[in-house]
Design a binder for these strands. Structure first.
Length: 581
RNA sequence: GCACCCAUAGCUCAGCUGGAUAGAGCGUUGCCUUCCGAAGGCAAAGGCCGCACGUUCGAAUCGUGCUGGGUGCACCA
């Protein structure tokens, strides 16, 4: 049930009646008609722009349409008053029973309230994280991981059929570097001095890998050249790193559905097949690229390469799929991988990448557009940087020195729930400040705390009621008579709860989970406000000692608010706290 | 040189596929605890929505052109 679509249906059917009576011409486009709460609550509960939208195509003055429409709308049992205002808005005031009914609906549906079929079971694949298997996840990966997971939860809640996927970049030269780095740690484990040359990974996390290699191979690799062990240690080390990464994701509360390997694409003919498919479309050719502009490229030499004509699908220049040594570029297996995703029958693909991959967007979209015949849209969400702060100063980390902040460091310091919530308080394309001190602060400055505190207050009042012997089970509350719940402040709370399903759809449509975080903040603010009004007006308190009937009625509203907070936190992947400590 | 992203209150940011007088937190100023958790609430002050044209009944939102900031630009992944 969605109040807004119900009322929109009412407006649309009223318009149809006017058409039937000849007051409006037939064949009008009604899609632009909206029914929304007005920005200023003093205007009423709902407002529609129908008269203004229809005025021009109908050739009738907006006020004339609005006056007639308002009269028609006022006949509905749910409508107290429909009045025309401003340039032609129709403001609608609803009977309290509508809002009381909404509280009932929330309590009956629980955290399923707000779930919708907006996505119509379309199959969407969300590829995210996809960190190279060359080390543990660091803080730079966290935001993308949290965003991808929250987006997946959001789209699932809004009716999409979601698959979460991790693309393991285990096919490139960086895994050779990993293997060589691990080999030095292996020598170290055997009692030799490791020689960690420039360009190798210096991090301590490879020490256990070296020990594991020793445990498996003994000293048999010590006097062997690289050609004997490189391929084997590539697999060995990257497998260990993936185990590590999966553990990191688990700590964050992220569960992938599918892991795909780049390495596994090589040697299967799938790259060749994908490229041949493009070739069949006339999109592969041998050619020479212009030298790149901008910063000086002294080492540029014009050379003939195998190119993908991505410009035919919106890119700025054509892109090489083969290196000068004949090997595939990184792009080639990625084309094959995306072709595979298309062939697996997804209706929509979403890739979540770091903002530094911005230059990659157009070519990948071009490839998917070509390979799917334009059928499957690829949406690429770029995640901006996170700036770390500690003790009032930027918190630097150096990947080269191996001193980076790992995902586990962050979770250890502030917890997974706080990490997730804070990472979701900005839209993906804006940079985010993450202040280790502020995110743990217990004040309204900190949205995590503020929302959790609202939930704790709700639980507190439920607890008190139970101590008083009052039954406040959800089933009981859902059946409570709310017809005397009529105070404007309480109805305003219910109004905010009514926003939830609409917000879910808007957030899902725009792929913007941060809207959920902001909504929860507003909802918490309303709850705190109502709570404090109880100080001056005892009638507005939730708990009324010695008056079970009033208490259950008030607590029904509080519990409904708690239910929506829990549902919203669920989408963010954050556990609601019962009590503040 | 080209592409992408960003520009809203002193600061950090919301702003609903274009709607009425542009919102919140911090900071500033003034209030509210014999009362369900004051870790909170109420109120005031604070705005050429970067600039200029355009589309529209209506623009912070859409288009074009500027200005300022960030990122990326064959043979890495």
């Amino acid at each position: 049930m969605n109040l807004f679509s119900d009322l929109r249906d009412l407006v649309v059917s009223s318009v149809h009646d006017m058409v039937a009576k000849g007051a409006l011409p037939a064949g009008l486009d009604l899609t632009a008609i909206t029914v929304e709460p007005p920005r200023d609550a003093a205007h009423g509960d709902m407002a529609t722009n129908a008269a203004m939208v229809l005025a021009k195509p109908a050739g009738v003055a907006p006020r004339v349409i609005a006056d007639a429409l308002a009269i028609a709308l006022a006949k509905d049992a749910r409508v107290v008053e429909a009045s025309v205002a401003g340039p032609g808005f129709i403001n609608i005031r609803l009977i309290p029973a509508v809002w009381q009914g909404l509280v009932h609906a929330v309590l009956q549906q629980g955290t399923q309230y707000g779930r919708s079929n907006f996505g119509a079971h379309q199959k969407v694949n969300i590829e995210f994280v996809s960190a190279n298997p060359t080390g543990p996840m660091h803080v730079g990966h966290v935001r993308g991981a949290v965003f991808g997971d929250a987006l997946a939860r959001l789209l699932a809640f809004a009716g999409w059929d979601v698959t979460r996927e991790y693309y393991i970049n285990d096919g490139g030269a960086q895994v050779d570097v990993l293997a060589r780095s691990a080999y030095e740690r292996y020598r170290e484990a055997c009692g030799l001095e490791p020689e960690i040359a420039e360009g190798l990974y210096p991090g301590d996390y490879l020490i256990p890998v070296g020990e594991a290699i020793k445990a498996k191979y003994g000293d048999t690799l010590l006097d062997k050249g690289e050609q004997y062990w490189l391929a084997e240690l590539r697999d060995f080390a990257s497998d260990m790193m993936m185990t590590e990464i999966k553990g990191d994701l688990a700590v964050l509360g992220v569960q992938m559905d599918v892991y795909s390997s780049e390495k596994a694409i090589y040697g299967t003919g799938r790259i060749e097949a994908a490229i041949d498919t493009l070739r069949g479309m006339g999109l592969i050719y041998e050619g020479t690229l212009e030298p790149p502009k901008g910063k000086a490229q002294e080492d540029y030499e014009p050379r003939v390469q195998t190119l993908f004509r991505s410009t035919a699908h919106g890119d700025d220049v054509d892109r090489p799929v083969q290196k000068s040594d004949g090997g595939w570029t990184y792009f080639a297996p990625d084309i094959a991988y995306h072709y595979d995703k298309v062939n697996r029958g997804f209706d929509q693909l979403i890739d979540i990448l770091g903002a530094d991959h911005g230059g990659y967007v157009k070519r990948m979209k071009a490839a998917v557009s070509a390979l799917s015949g334009g059928r499957v849209p690829l949406d690429i969400k770029l995640i901006q940087l996170v700036k770390l702060w500690k003790d009032g100063e930027p918190f630097k980390m150096s990947k080269r020195a191996g001193t980076f902040v790992t995902l586990r460091d962050v979770v250890e310091m502030v917890g997974a729930d706080v990490t997730r919530f804070v990472m979701l308080t900005r839209k993906n394309d804006a940079t985010l400040d993450f202040d280790f001190d502020k995110v743990l602060e217990q004040s309204k400055d900190n949205p995590v705390f503020y929302v959790q505190y609202a939930n704790a207050r709700i639980n507190s009042v439920l607890r008190k009621a139970r101590e008083d012997g009052i039954n406040v089970d959800d089933a009981t509350l859902a059946a409570v008579d709310l017809s005397t719940l009529t105070h404007p402040a309480e109805l305003a709370m219910a109004r905010q709860l009514a926003e939830w399903p609409r917000l879910v759809d808007i957030a899902a449509r725009n792929n913007e989970p941060h809207r959920v975080a902001f909504y929860l903040y507003e909802l918490a603010s309303d709850l705190h406000s109502l709570w404090n009004r109880g100080n001056d007006e005892p009638a507005l308190r939730f708990f009324h000692p010695g008056d079970p009937a009033t208490t259950t009625r008030k607590i029904a509203l509080a519990r409904a608010t708690g239910v929506v907070i829990a549902a919203g936190l669920g989408i963010l992947g954050v556990a609601p706290v019962e009590e503040m400590r």
